[in-house]
């Protein structure tokens, strides 16, 4: 990351999504699954995802890189009123590390 981005008080240019950490080498498993046949394309999952991992054009689609980028907030599950999204946390000991939570 460019040092300029994180100093001097102006952080508007910083890429926030890069400021997350993961347990190295641990398999998180398939912890988000979804059923497009239940999706009515309302777009709620895509709006609330803080990591911008959902795209809803015709039907909701999750980024294939979600295991590495997901912030584990469960908001996509919580917001989908059609039960199209199933969420369980990653396998124990895997996934995100919050260092200064």
């Amino acid at each position: 990351m460019d040092q300029r981005d994180t100093k001097g008080g102006d952080f508007t240019g910083t890429s926030l999504l890069k400021l997350t950490f993961k347990v190295e080498g641990a398999d998180p498993g398939e912890f988000i699954t979804y059923d497009q046949s239940k999706c009515n394309s309302c777009g709620a999952c895509s709006l609330v995802c803080s990591a911008n991992l959902w795209a809803v054009k015709d039907k909701a689609k999750l980024s294939p890189r979600y295991q590495e980028l997901c912030l584990e907030c469960a908001a996509c599950y919580a917001v989908c009123e059609n039960d199209a999204i199933a969420f369980r946390y990653p396998n124990g000991g895997a996934g995100i590390i919050i260092k200064h939570g």
């Binding site: 994180t6 001097g8 008080g9 950490f21 803080s50 907030c73 939570g101």
Partner: peptide, 18 residues
């Protein structure tokens, strides 16, 4: 931004929780 400068702030982590 001024507050950040005054305490030598550096951005460190992005988190989200319900």
């Amino acid at each position: 931004q001024a507050m950040c400068r005054s305490v030598d702030a550096e951005l460190r982590e992005y988190q989200v929780h319900l």
